[in-house]
């Protein structure tokens, strides 16, 4: 029995360690702040209506908001620029090279056209 308890205790401790190691300070759930009283579902609904720039700003406000912005990004994942593959029209003249939007792919996934404005921002600094 003791061994079982010990091992259970151990896993708990290590999980806690993992969680506390993510952030240095202890998370605050303050009564007086307005969003702490809102359940995550409500916040998620709000964040669904925000764009990437807003989410970027929200993510560095608090631990809770950081966690929720990650969840809400699922709807339009912001990929790393080095995951993009840029393709050129095969005319050989690199000075006239042009990205054809239909040919911009993310490895393993093609983004929706609605996100093309975001894509342009990525690709502008590419190559």
């Amino acid at each position: 029995d003791l061994t079982v308890k010990a091992s259970v205790g151990e896993t708990c401790a290590s999980t806690c360690d993992c969680l506390t190691n993510v952030f240095k300070k202890q998370g605050i759930i303050a009564e007086e702040d307005h969003i702490s009283n809102l359940p995550d579902d409500c916040l998620l609904e709000i964040l669904k209506l925000c764009d990437h720039d807003d989410l970027d700003e929200l993510s560095c406000i608090s631990q809770r908001l950081y966690a929720i912005t990650i969840q809400s990004r699922k709807h339009a994942v912001k990929e790393r620029w080095n995951m993009l593959v840029k393709q050129f029209r095969p005319n050989g003249d690199r000075s006239k090279e042009e990205v054809t939007w239909s040919s911009v792919y993310c490895v393993g996934r093609q983004r929706k056209r609605a996100d093309i404005e975001d894509w342009k921002r990525y690709v502008r600094c590419f190559g």
Binding site: K25, I28, A30, D33, I61, S62, Y66
Partner: peptide
């Protein structure tokens, strides 16, 4: 900006 939002929400930042 994030500090404006934090002020509006009345959030105390718990990030270093």
């Amino acid at each position: 900006k994030s500090d404006e939002i934090a002020e509006m929400f009345n959030i105390h930042c718990d990030l270093t």
